[in-house]
Design a protein around this nucleic acid. Structure first.
Length: 763
DNA sequence: AAAGCGGTACTTTTT
DNA sequence: GTACCGCTTT
């Protein structure tokens, strides 16, 4: 133990050893913050503190996992495992599941991600017949989210005169109504959104003193990382839990607060001294990460912010190279320059791809960079962006999982009741929704017993609804008998999703099928992993898997094969927080992009952008390159750009300006290869099976014709223009509405309206 | 009922 | 440039 204390400088050592009472650590960028946190926890454990008495809150799951690993190296895996370490959201989701009955939720409540929340809001706005432009889901959700993060309930929201007049001024007077309805629907669906996890934890700790007391006793030591990014709701949870013994240690850097847009409050750092008069404050100011030039350049920018805690970040490292500022004529050229520069430096200095990172303000900027990297065969990996878990096919699978686990999950129900298509159309669903609302019962109940609720849809639709519910319920009964993987496979099969994608040959669907398989693989890994919670059922079931899936991001899925992990990293600056790379390229550093156009209205917003810039600069260890382009496609439209004001704020003595050469020869080469790739693309396409089929169609056309319902009976073999061979399963309706259910060999079950479908009867 | 087409609106950042 | 919506076609 004493050994590793040698690795620490004086303030670091103080921050580790002062385990009793309130401690705040102000940790400048690259000052060894993670080291302090891990050593502090290891030190606590070595003093005999039980790991399950330590609560350690981090900002991302990945950070938690990495820290756990490092602690495991110091104190052994088994003890590290029992630590309560994770994000606010995942830790308190876990506690809410334990205490859910007190709040009237089932313990398997569903967690809605942003996507789910927006869908729900959209549905409510539509039902209320509000203008969906005024009440854009994103806007309404951010209002609701803001309220929740400040512990303003729907009731409070509607009664607060100030809020009401704000919404009226903005011509959105019904925002409060949508908030109320949204909460009702979440409750009805046994679901919580991200903010509810924190809001409801506050309710739990406020209304159930015995519960509060229990956790106050349990968590003898509390640590909070990235304290500058906590919002009021999180702040209050921590304050309450720590109130009994005040062994609380918060670590943060006000200069790196970049999440005010989602409610983070720097004041939490500034107020710490008031909340805990006995506090000790340690400042970590020595940067071990970056060169002098990088540290000083970062400092020269951040001094332009008014709101900050005084500190002087310095380093003993080499002076290093100057910050390079590079001007390009367009975003494409910027991409090409960056790719080429990475290639050159990597070759000259014998480095790995993983030593390089490209950081940008918005996810949309990644494309030109990807293209350029691909062109010269530099492997890269994009972090963030459209997450695996947000892809349609994955969300569909997860919706099935959710519905099987929680029958009340209406969003999941609506999402999959007719996917894959089973002949339950929009009209029928609209009736179902109205009917369920009138009777105040969950959708699934009406679907199960349409007769009892006098649902006015055709008998065929009723049967299909019942069949669907039967499938879901029979899957539910098996939940505890099989592991997550077996269950996932069963669901993928029974639902028809596997078949649906299997039948299709379109490249998108092939890709989707692969993603579904990928998800099943993930389930397999999960099922085979031993449980990390003591005393839990050794069978790793699907509902356990689902418990924090909504809280996962791609970064958490990061189980890439280390053998081919030598890749350049591409990510937003936000997701680069906490990381470091020898060579960093900050691209698209232009006015209106960085700082973002949306931030220009207020000083506070602009200061946040500046902190973001500071974060980007301080990711670099050896060299930082800042690039901007004179023109950029925004919206698919040409835009003339100017360099960002932040470039001017970099003190000139740390900076060198260059421009990209006009690579005329390269442009010619580029165009050529672009044409080439197009040619090969279309050549590929014309050879595809689809196209060949299409070409054959005109001649075959005359053989297909409209048929009368009486020409068909169950068992009739027929051929359809697009779907090929199939067998009639049922014929129903007559005249205009006559339709047939046909099971096609390659396309699965389809409903054909005989008024339209051109068929050839074979038998 | 379902697929495919064309017009429209959207882009800040994330647990 | 794309994701989504509504309209049209089968």
């Amino acid at each position: 133990m004493a050994d590793f204390l040698k690795d620490l400088n004086e303030p670091q050592r103080q921050a580790v050893l002062n385990t009793e009472g309130p401690v705040m650590v102000i940790a400048g960028a690259g000052s060894g913050k993670t080291r302090v946190l891990t050593y502090r926890i290891a030190y606590l454990l070595s003093k005999g503190v039980d790991p399950f008495q330590v609560l350690s809150l981090t900002f991302t799951n990945k950070a938690a996992r990495e820290m756990k690993e490092r602690i495991a190296q110091l104190v052994g895996a088994s003890r590290a495992k029992s630590l309560w370490m994770g994000t606010f959201h995942s830790i308190f989701a876990r506690i809410l599941r334990i205490e859910s009955d007190k709040l009237g939720f089932p313990s398997n409540f569903t967690i809605y991600d942003t996507d789910d929340s927006k869908r729900l809001i959209k549905a409510i706005v539509k039902e209320q017949q509000l203008d969906d432009k005024k009440y854009a889901p994103g806007y309404v959700l951010s209002r609701i989210s803001n309220a929740k993060n400040n512990l303003i309930s729907a009731l409070d929201y509607n009664e607060d005169a100030e809020i009401q007049s704000y919404d009226i001024q903005n011509q959105k007077p019904k925002t409060g109504l949508v908030y109320s309805l949204y909460q009702q629907r979440l409750r009805k669906a046994s679901a919580m959104d991200f903010d509810d996890l924190l809001f409801n934890t506050n309710v739990l700790l406020r209304d159930f003193p015995d519960v509060l007391y229990k956790y106050q006793l349990k968590f003898k030591y509390i640590l909070v990382d990235e304290y500058q990014d906590t919002n009021f709701s999180q702040y209050l949870i921590v304050k309450k839990l720590a109130a009994n013994n005040e062994n609380i240690c918060v670590v943060g850097d006000d200069a790196q607060s970049i999440y005010a847009f989602r409610g983070a409050n720097i004041q939490n750092i500034l107020n710490f001294k008031k909340d805990y008069p006995d506090n000790k404050v340690f400042k970590l100011e020595q940067n071990y990460r970056s060169t002098k030039n990088i540290v000083n350049a970062a400092n020269s920018v951040i001094i332009n912010n008014k709101d900050q805690i005084q500190k002087k970040v310095w380093t003993d490292n080499d002076t290093g190279e100057l910050i390079k500022i590079v001007k390009s004529s367009s975003e494409n050229e910027e991409g090409i320059w960056v790719a080429n520069n990475i290639f050159e430096i990597r070759m000259n200095k014998h480095l790995n791809n993983r030593d390089f990172a490209i950081l940008y303000r918005t996810n949309a900027q990644s494309r030109s960079l990807e293209e350029a990297l691909r062109k010269i065969n530099i492997p890269y990996r994009i972090y963030g962006g459209v997450s695996f878990y947000q892809r349609k096919e994955i969300k569909d699978m997860l919706a099935y999982f959710r519905l099987v686990i929680n029958h009340n999950d209406e969003d999941a129900f609506l999402r999959v009741v007719n996917f894959p298509a089973r002949g339950i159309g929009k009209t029928s669903l609209d009736k179902l929704i109205v009917c369920a609302n009138d009777n105040q019962v969950p959708l699934i109940e009406v679907a199960e017993q349409p007769g009892n609720f006098r649902l006015e849809v055709g008998n065929a639709v009723k049967n299909r609804l019942q069949e669907f519910v039967l499938m879901i319920k029979s899957l539910s009964t098996q939940l505890n008998q099989y592991n997550a993987y077996e269950m996932g496979r069963k669901i993928a099969t029974s639902s028809g999703i596997l078949k649906h994608y299997h039948a299709s040959e379109s490249p998108e669907d092939m890709n989707r099928k692969e993603n579904v398989e990928e998800l099943l693989n993930g389930l397999k890994d999960f099922s085979e992993m031993p449980s990390d919670v003591e005393g839990e059922n050794p069978l790793r079931t699907l509902d356990v898997f689902m418990q924090d899936i909504a809280l996962m991001t791609d970064a958490d899925l990061d189980k890439e094969d280390p053998a081919d992990s030598d890749k350049v990293s591409l990510m937003t600056i936000h997701s680069a927080k906490g990381l470091e790379f020898p060579y960093v390229y900050m691209v698209g550093v232009e006015e209106n992009l960085f700082p973002s156009q949306m931030s220009l209205n207020s000083r506070a917003d602009l200061e946040e952008e500046r902190r973001l810039f500071y974060v980007a600069v301080t990711r670099a260890m050896t060299q930082l390159t800042v690039t901007w382009a004179e023109t950029r496609f925004k919206f698919g439209q040409f835009n003339i750009c100017e360099p960002s004001r932040f470039i001017d704020e970099l003190a000139p003595e740390f900076v060198i300006n260059t421009a990209t050469r006009q690579p005329i020869k390269k442009q010619g080469w580029l165009k050529e290869s672009f044409a080439d790739s197009r040619k090969s693309f279309s050549a590929d396409n014309s050879g595809s099976a689809d196209q060949q089929k299409a070409r054959q169609q005109p001649e075959a056309d005359s053989m297909f014709q409209l048929v009368k319902p009486q020409d068909l009976e169950p068992g009739t073999m027929l051929q359809h223009q697009r779907f090929g061979m199939g067998k009639v399963e049922a014929v129903e309706g007559n005249g205009e509405n006559a339709k047939a259910t046909v099971l096609f060999n390659n396309f699965g079950k389809k409903q054909l309206l005989l008024k339209f479908a051109r068929l050839k009867i074979l038998s």
